[in-house]
């Protein structure tokens, strides 16, 4: 064997090893619903902040939120942001972007039924300066941690943690872990928000490969949903006037203070605290 052939052999082995360190996430993925179905499909109940690490400001945003806000022309076609859209009921398509010269996968693109294209760049490009525009998808880069893809997402527009008025600010950042086990995809999202969260908020969501799936187009037209509404009206509830804040707690027999959320309510120890409190009374 000549020296040049030896070098070529080493290079082949190296490139094969490199490829083995990456997982292909491309394909058609269908959402799988478990205990999260009530929140993800029909939608969460008003006043259900259970298990969310929100602060007082986040609670006030939600308490004063009026669903009629979504009838404003500015919000009728708003898609879910990158952090929330995994939780939507939509099917998911992930495609690869391949450099035709190096044949390296330079990005994954994720799109859902009502989303904007969301590229996750793998080519080492930097994030844009802080003063660049923010988008629903944010700006995502990824790096491999073995077979797991870890993403960092910045430049997000304001969005929501839950579709009942729990806001997530545009100063938030997102870290994700994409994990594939055969035909199953699990995505762990970790939202850090200095405005409305006191701790990172972590969720995991599952999808299953569905080779028969087709994500259709989903056009959205803005229409006048409320006739004769005065221009400039922004639907909201004045502080202290929301009659539905405790409806969820009453309906499900959840202690009212637990339904108000907060980091403490995320942890198992909180059940013991609530139990002790109930025993005292």
């Amino acid at each position: 064997m000549t020296r040049s052939w030896m070098v070529a052999g080493v290079l082949v082995c190296w490139s094969t090893w490199q490829a083995a360190a990456q997982v292909d996430f491309s394909g058609e993925w269908a959402p799988r619903f478990y205990e999260d179905q009530p929140e993800r499909v029909p939608g969460p109940e008003l006043g259900d902040y259970l298990g969310l690490p929100i602060n007082e400001a986040g609670r006030m945003r939600a308490d004063t939120w009026d669903a009629s806000l979504l009838t404003l022309p500015e919000w009728q076609c708003r898609p879910h942001s990158a952090d929330y859209i995994w939780r939507g009921p939509s099917n998911l398509r992930i495609s690869q972007e391949v450099d035709p010269v190096t044949r390296e996968v330079t990005a994954f693109h994720a799109e859902w039924l009502r989303s904007v294209d969301r590229p996750v760049y793998l080519d080492g490009r930097p994030h844009p300066p802080d003063w660049s525009a923010h988008t629903w998808a944010g700006f995502s880069t990824g790096k491999w941690d073995g077979d797991m893809l870890t993403t960092r997402v910045t430049h997000l527009k304001e969005g929501y943690i839950r579709r009942n008025g729990i806001a997530r600010s545009d100063l938030a950042t997102l870290t994700e872990h994409w994990i594939r086990h055969g035909e199953f995809l699990t995505v762990v999202t970790i939202v850090t928000d200095p405005v409305y969260l006191t701790e990172p908020f972590i969720r995991s969501t599952d999808y299953e490969l569905d080779v028969h799936q087709q994500v259709p187009p989903y056009p959205c037209e803005v229409v006048e949903e409320v006739e004769d509404r005065q221009r400039g009206t922004v639907p909201h509830l004045l502080p202290g006037t929301n009659k539905f804040v405790f409806e969820f707690a009453k309906k499900y027999g959840v202690p009212a203070e637990a339904a108000r959320g907060g980091a403490e309510t995320m942890y198992p120890e909180y059940q013991l605290k609530i139990q002790k409190s109930a025993d005292k009374h």
Partner: peptide, 24 residues
């Protein structure tokens, strides 16, 4: 598209925006 981009808005101070940012 989907309330993003299109008309871009340069604020008096702060980052580059579009109309959704103005709406918020």
């Amino acid at each position: 598209f989907r309330l993003e981009g299109g008309t871009m808005v340069v604020p008096g101070h702060g980052r580059l925006c579009d109309s959704a940012d103005v709406a918020y």
